[in-house]
Design a protein around this nucleic acid. Structure first.
Lengths: 341, 341
DNA sequence: TTATAGGATGGTAGCGATACCAAGAGAACG
DNA sequence: CGTTCTCTTGGTATCGCTACCATCCTATAA
């Protein structure tokens, strides 16, 4: 059909073609498209007509190269699959889009090395900003980001010293508050099930919070009450069963991952264990599901949507000219007491 | 600090700088980076050293402009928040990344007009391929896509005439199969709860499938057995209650949306209605949740992950040179019979 | 009437890479 | 020893757009 590989198909109409057909200069076309107010009514109409006639789409790649400005923001999350991230992503995407920016998403699978590779790749694409759902990075990531000079949001945890801007809640405080809440409700033997701790500052912080609260409550810190489990319904159920077997007096389980908590709840239903009669269940992160389960599940409400929204807003402000300053926003959390505790 | 707005920060080291410091020509740097095999060992080492010394990141924007090739694929989903899409997105992202491509994601919120705006925007960014989770488009979208000449995957449904390539299952056949399955199990008064039908070919098809199956079963087509509900746990519960109230003989509910089904299940638990004793519940889409709920829920397993994987693979093949041909892949579905029916 | 400001247009020179072709350096051959 | 072939390397011309500055035109003031 064609002698060489067709790289990009398309007839590739360009700005100068439009200019010629409209009888104006390319610059006028450029202006009519980006800043219509700076062009006379007459010119604008000519340009618009030609643009419509040819179905012209300006080449943003050329535009970005020329203006040294891009309108794409990069986002790295540990996993796209997880619905927690999904609501944050949605919020980011919405705010960006409303301001004419786009989102490039990648997932690191909780690997710091992969995060590094992705940060390089995104910076090579010359993203104009970055959102990282992670607050511990390799040295190279820190260097790259500093050197690139693009605004960066870190989230997922509250770092003591953000790279640039951080929007999050404190995993430590949240876990501590929930544990304290359970103590206040009278529970005395509180198990803690955590997601994998390796390379995950969030999980670490939560566990620290749990122990801190136990100390505040004057309860013994028993490491055997802490179980590490990969996320998943079955794993949550298994963990609870194991805790109950090894600690007959267990009266509550705090699951630092909502899916784990729901899995535990289902396992209780299956075994006919009353929740909270036999054992109370508390969760982390307010999945919609938890409000509808039977019984409804006590949890921490993390304003994921707000985190996404504010992250994107900060980024956009900076991109629109706000002066660079280290910002660290604590969006807080809320304990939602429900039937399960 | 600086007299003019700093657009992109960074010292902006470029290829010619690296070339100078390595004592070679820019072309050699370019080759050493993209096709190391075409460059002598000696040159490659010089280049690598300079690249590392300066922490140089090639500018992909310039590269794309020059080569007329981009490595970014665009994806438009109705909603990022929904976990159905999440597992497909993850699969797409993984395959693309393994082949050196990136993903730009946007969500249309089920609006065809928004889809149109996003397709324009993505094509203006000169994405090298497009995945649309939708099979009905505005005329302009069809024109734009044709003109751009980039490979396109449609998914979410099986269109009779794909724009280019389609990877999906048949919503019609799936809904028909599940309804038939319920009939085979002996249910005679089967309610159908659908997601909003407006501008949504998937929902339409599912409803058609339901009616087709009723006809096959020799059961009357009673429009009052069909309820439209926005997605959500409460909405699923409400819909079931309404159906039961208006049709005392209702013995099964088929929910064309997993969240609706789970909501209905919870409502039954709350009211003490035996599932499936009082009413059976069947769902669409095999959320993990359904396998763990009590009782476990009968559903249609849609290979979302496979859809994402194969979509991305087709796209990558085409981008790597496979000849353009209309492809229409039916990945099928599977009925998973569980305790709830 | 001429001077002058201010807004609208156009010309030119890149942005930072790659495609394409030409040239140089060895290797292999008669 | 010259010729041809292959493998590397380098130079030049874009890619499609925007920044920047020069120019031109019209409107208002003197």
């Amino acid at each position: 059909m064609s002698r060489k590989i067709k790289r990009n198909g398309g007839d590739d109409i360009k700005m100068s073609d439009i200019a010629r057909h409209a009888g104006v200069s390319p610059m006028t076309v450029s202006r009519a498209l980006r800043a219509p107010a700076t062009v006379s009514e007459k010119m604008r109409r000519k340009v618009d007509a030609a643009v419509r006639e040819f179905g012209y789409l300006p080449n943003r790649i050329a535009g970005s190269l020329s203006s040294k400005r891009s309108n794409v923001v990069g986002l790295i999350v540990p996993s796209i699959r997880n619905s927690l991230y999904a609501s944050m992503i949605q919020a980011i995407s919405d705010v960006l889009r409303a301001n004419g920016f786009h989102l490039m998403i990648a997932n690191s699978g909780h690997q710091l090395d992969d995060e590094e590779a992705l940060v390089s790749a995104l910076l090579a694409q010359r993203v104009c900003g970055l959102v990282l759902h992670n607050t511990t990075h390799t040295k190279r990531v820190r260097d790259l980001v500093r050197k690139a000079g693009v605004p960066v949001i870190e989230t997922g945890n509250l770092p003591a010293e953000p790279l640039d801007m951080a929007v999050s809640y404190s995993n430590f405080e949240a876990a501590r508050a929930m544990t304290a809440h359970l103590g206040r409700l009278g529970y005395r033997k509180i198990g803690f099930v955590t997601l994998p701790l390796r390379d995950n500052d969030r999980s670490e912080e939560r566990r620290r919070g749990y122990f801190a609260a136990l100390k505040d409550l004057g309860l013994p810190a028993d490491p055997s009450l802490v179980l590490e489990a990969p996320g998943g319904f079955s794993e949550g159920g298994d963990a609870l069963v194991r805790l109950v077997q090894t600690h007959p007096g267990l009266d509550a389980g705090f699951f630092a991952g909502d899916v784990l908590a729901v899995g535990a709840l289902f396992e209780c239903q299956r075994r006919g264990w009353a929740v909270p009669g036999r054992v109370a269940i508390a969760s982390f992160d307010d999945l919609d599901l938890l409000r509808h389960a039977v019984p409804t599940v006590t949890t921490l409400r993390i304003p994921r949507h707000e985190i996404g929204r504010r992250s994107a807003e900060l980024l956009v402000n900076r991109l629109l000219g706000a002066s660079p300053e280290r910002i660290r926003i604590d969006v807080g959390f809320e304990i939602v007491q429900r039937e399960s505790t």
